[in-house]
Amino acid sequence: MTIAPDDARQDSRHYQAMRDVIEQIQDSVPGKLEISKEGIVHDMMSPGRPHELTALHVRKRLERVMPDEITAHTGTPDVEVEPEGIMRHPDVMVIAMEDMEGQGSFDPRTLIAAIEVVSLSNPDNDWVGKMRDYPLLGIPVYVIFDPRTGSGAVLSDIHPTPNGPRYATRKDFQYGEDVTIADWTIPTDKLPRYA
C-alpha cells in the first residue's frame, strides 16, 4: 500500500500526538507506556521483583562473557523509529557503547539484541506485539524470558513476509539450559519465577 503525502503527514502528526501524551503522563501513571503499530501500549503494573531480578541476572551474565565495548543496558532511552510509528523500551538492550552516544532515542538498528522479560500483567505485549515490532525495527535478535513458565525463545534471521518483516528462526529453551544471544552463551539456571 502506498501512503499519499497527506496520509504520511497525518500519520506523523498522530504519532507525535501519542509521543506528547506519553511524555505528559508517564510519571503520573503506574507501569510503562510504549507505542506499537496498534497504538499506545500500557503495561499497567510496574515490574515486580522477579521481573527486575531476571533482567538483572541476564544483564550480569551477558556482561561477564561480552567484550568491554559491548554492554547489556537496562536503562533509558527507548528505541524509536518515527516513520514506522513505533517506540519501544526493551528490558535489556545489547548494544555497543559507542552507539549509546548522543541525544534522543537509540536507533534500534544499532542494537545487537533486544531482551524482554514477560510481564505478568500483559504477556501478549512481549509474545505478540514486540515479536511483530522488533523485526520491523531491524533488531536482529529478540530474546524472551518468561518467568510464568520458566521458558523462553530466541528469535532471529529477519526475512520479508506479506505481513512485513518477521523472524524466520525460533529456538525455544527451558530455564536451566544455556541460551545463545547473538554471539554469547549464558546459563539460565536459578532465574526467578512468578509465584
Rank of each mutant, 00 (worst) to 15 (best):
L136T: 15
S119E: 02
P147H: 07
L155W: 06
D124N: 12
V143K: 05
D133N: 14
A153P: 12
D124H: 05
P147D: 07
K130H: 07
P147M: 06
S119A: 12
R132E: 13
V154I: 12
I139S: 07
D146N: 15
G150R: 01
N125L: 10
V154L: 05
W127I: 09
V143M: 09
V143F: 06
D133F: 05
I139V: 15
N122Y: 03
D126N: 03
S119Y: 00
T149S: 13
R132D: 14
R132G: 08
L155Y: 15
I139P: 09
N122A: 14
S121C: 07
V128L: 10
S119H: 01
D146Y: 04
S121H: 00
F145K: 09
L155F: 14
P123A: 08
G150D: 05
D146L: 06
P135H: 02
R148C: 12
G150Q: 02
G152D: 04
P140D: 12
K130V: 08
R132F: 13
I144W: 03
K130G: 12
I144E: 10
V143Q: 07
G138Y: 03
F145M: 08
D133T: 05
I139A: 10
G138I: 03
M131P: 02
N122P: 01
M131Q: 14
V141Y: 08
D146C: 10
D146Q: 11
V154A: 08
P123R: 01
V141Q: 09
L120D: 13
G152P: 10
S121D: 14
L155V: 13
V143W: 01
S121R: 00
G150A: 03
N122C: 01
F145E: 11
I139H: 03
N125R: 04
Y134P: 12
V154S: 09
G138L: 07
G129K: 06
V154F: 01
P147N: 10
P135Y: 00
L120N: 11
A153T: 14
F145L: 08
S151Y: 00
L137T: 03
V154M: 05
T149P: 04
Y134D: 09
I139K: 02
D126W: 00
I144S: 10
M131H: 12
P135L: 02
